[in-house]
Design a protein around this nucleic acid. Sequence first.
DNA 1: CTGAAAGCGCTTACAG
DNA 2: CTGAAAGCGCTTACAG
Lengths: 329, 329
Amino acid sequence: MCSIKDVAKHANVSVTTVSRVLNDFPNISAKTRQKVLDSITALDYHPDYMARSLSKQQSLIIGVIIPDCSHPFFAELVKHIEMTAENNGYKILLCNSLNDEKKERSYINMLKEKRVAGIIMGSHLINTDFYQSIHRPIITFDRYLGDNIPYIGSDNFTGGQLATQHLIDSGCKSLLHISGSHQLHTQANKRSDGFKITCIENDINYQILEYQYAQLTFDYYYEYIKTTVSPLLSEIDGVFCSNDILAYALYVYCTNHDISVPKTLKIVGYDYCQFTRLLQHPRITTIAQPIPIIGELLSKNIIQMIEDGETHNVYSQTLGVKLVKGITT
Amino acid sequence: MCSIKDVAKHANVSVTTVSRVLNDFPNISAKTRQKVLDSITALDYHPDYMARSLSKQQSLIIGVIIPDCSHPFFAELVKHIEMTAENNGYKILLCNSLNDEKKERSYINMLKEKRVAGIIMGSHLINTDFYQSIHRPIITFDRYLGDNIPYIGSDNFTGGQLATQHLIDSGCKSLLHISGSHQLHTQANKRSDGFKITCIENDINYQILEYQYAQLTFDYYYEYIKTTVSPLLSEIDGVFCSNDILAYALYVYCTNHDISVPKTLKIVGYDYCQFTRLLQHPRITTIAQPIPIIGELLSKNIIQMIEDGETHNVYSQTLGVKLVKGITT
DNA sequence: CTGAAAGCGCTTACAG
DNA sequence: CTGAAAGCGCTTACAG
């Protein structure tokens, strides 16, 4: 591994000159530039990223903190975050918080250690105040943390409305919404608002259930349905689930307990992630979030914040959603 | 953001002393240590990771290169790689090669820029020679690149045998194996060997088809089945697919074309990743790879290689597989 | 037990 | 158009 000094010696110029060639400075004679370039290839020289970062006081790495990259929704989100970052010269440091608050905090400390230039935050256990002490680029997925921290998310309110209105238009008279915990003030809570308002406007009976955040797995959801949801199932004829894995777990529960979907019970999910798109039996009726665009915007915006050194230019963005009709309604 | 100098000044000691406290050196008086510790908390000081890396000439980051983190198999693998890395003080830089050779190469250059201390390579388009010029810690998933580069993988040969024997035991008389390209010398090719030998030993007719690596998506597989596999379907009664998404695509194709599974055609997949485990209709018969253990070993071993500075102590490892019976056989 | 100084490999005013 | 020197924020022999 040779350093810039070796190149300078080999090309018979100063270190400064080599650095200038490396960084494409204009005022260099064609001859000198070529000499340096030749030495670089001759020695197979590669600039040391750490040294460059230290002297430029910048890191081309973005931290991405999510609950679990094996969850199909986040797997897909991360893919698009990474692709966009890569296209803009950044790499991503992937962190699974596993919904553990301590881990979230310790991952965020990467900012203070200057390991990363900014963070995309998709895991939401730490309370809002903590973030205000950081004063460095952070953008979130689907959570409001304060006016100086932008978020990107889908139009959860409209999503809630679309899902609910669809259930009502399909003939449902009594609805249930199964939601993630409202304790965390995430934008996803607005799905419940959309649900509630649409029910009220249509003069429809409704109930809302909140599961706690833990493992976001099929098994957890299935257990939750068995213990908490199933007692209500006789009173209702339509369910709006806060995500597709949950919706699928409910569908499977119904199949196993001779509840006919969509005849007796209609189900709408949320996300339309890869798993849902692949699933053929059943095709779940769901609200589609534009995952690729969300990922892209998270990356682009955090990069803009990093490079501008300012937050004001970046605004929170809410992206359109649409209903995808399957056979569960 | 304050530096080690500020802490030194605040505590009235030298920078050296602060550094010693930071690095838990033994020979420091309790009093001095406490003074420094107090200053650190008073100033909310966090050591600069870049500076430390530069002077120690080490990076606590592992590069992870895979084709696509949104593929359920890799999503799960990455999760376990990351968890293990984190538990050992390392972070991971996630790279999706999207099966693009250029990207693979440029991601590997991270090693030469000292951005990462080592690389876990799960994407296999570059030919073997290239790696020999790197002389730095690399470990691969499922591919042999040379004696000095260990790999971790499941027992592909046995997997192929198990799948094939199971089809034969279920009454199949004429088998097809759909495999990834054999051009890349990955360990996965041994699945075909296991298949072939088991067919020969049992005196069974067989054929092998190779699809090209491109997008590893359901849609690609479905199209491939339509154009290339379907003409053969009348001659055979059992298929061993090289992965579960492919097996699922085949199942869906059969459903859509009135081919009864498992009656007319029996199907065995490979992987038993999250998608397959979640899938209830149908539960696919498949060969389960121990994904969590593979991820864990990839991390642990690359870390050992990094810290030992030697390759010899790390050996390639082949992990056991088992058959999971579903309803497609 | 503690500190002054050199060094890690770059970049960037400053000077010519 | 080019170079000598200081600096980024740490660590680590070396000396006492």
